[in-house]
Write a protein that binds this DNA or RNA. Structure first.
Lengths: 143, 143
DNA sequence: TTCAATGCAAAAGTTTTGCACCTCT
DNA sequence: AGAGGTGCAAAACTTTTGCATTGAA
């Protein structure tokens, strides 16, 4: 908790219980939740928290590089506290979104034999398909 | 025009002026428009066209593999008549979205030295940065 | 003729905004 | 004390849906 407050302070943000709660949640989850999910989760421990504050907080965090917004084609954006550029997988079967640790699929634009005329700031790779768990299940439920 | 009707028919779709208009527009643009833009563009030549029909049409097309949905983190989805998996660039300066023809950045998951435990159906690479035009301009307008 | 597509309007869902009040510093 | 954050409600946007009417086969 103390550390989170420190991080926020260093970014020039006023430290509030709401901001600490949102950042801590994102640090400790692998689920890449959207704003609604963050709100519902924190509601339990922070009953006065409002959805608008979650949105405003995520917006600040995004601007300051504390979180990364991820858009996999659902109605809403997901958030990731891992801000370093890294690929994601999206299971078209169960809907899970995961970080993918794979050097061959990271920093692709820096490995090109011929440079692009496009100056890359950030690259985002999303692999859509079937996660290991759903491959095992191999059920039609997925289609 | 005749060819477009043919394509729709082959997909089992009833051929209507609205569907022909939407598909033709997507075939002839490089701008990766969203539903609203498609609607506004076609409104001129198809005054009775409704936005709901554009959405419904895009949905059919997506399902049948006639178009690809592209989500670059704006409020709305963009559409591309090039359905083959290929990388895109998004200029953080002027907002333009372009197809990127680069073999090194295409079919990445098929070139891995070690296979993933994730079964890839489709990969989507988006490069965010500055397009050639905006690099030339090199104006603060972009930030 | 028949079934599906269209257009309209209303609804649903996500995100933003304005403002009075509250809270960190 | 003062700047800035929070919560609420309303608004703004994007997308979906229901239904009567229209149009393609």
């Amino acid at each position: 908790m103390k550390e989170t407050a420190q991080v926020l302070r260093e970014k020039g943000l006023k430290v509030t219980p709401q901001r600490i709660a949102v950042y801590n949640m994102l640090l400790h989850t692998q689920s890449h939740p959207n704003a609604e999910t963050i709100y519902r989760t924190l509601e339990v421990t922070n009953p006065t928290m409002s959805l608008a504050t979650v949105y405003k907080t995520l917006d600040y965090f995004k601007q300051l590089g504390l979180v990364q917004e991820l858009n996999v084609g659902e109605g809403s954006a997901r958030y990731d506290a891992v801000v370093r550029c890294h690929p994601h997988t999206v299971c078209t079967c169960c809907g899970s979104v995961s970080d993918l640790e794979n050097d061959e699929l990271t920093n692709l634009h820096q490995k090109l034999s011929t440079p692009l005329d496009f100056q890359v700031e950030c690259e985002q790779l999303i692999l859509y398909g079937k996660c290991a768990k759903c491959q095992m299940a191999e059920q039609e439920a997925c289609e």
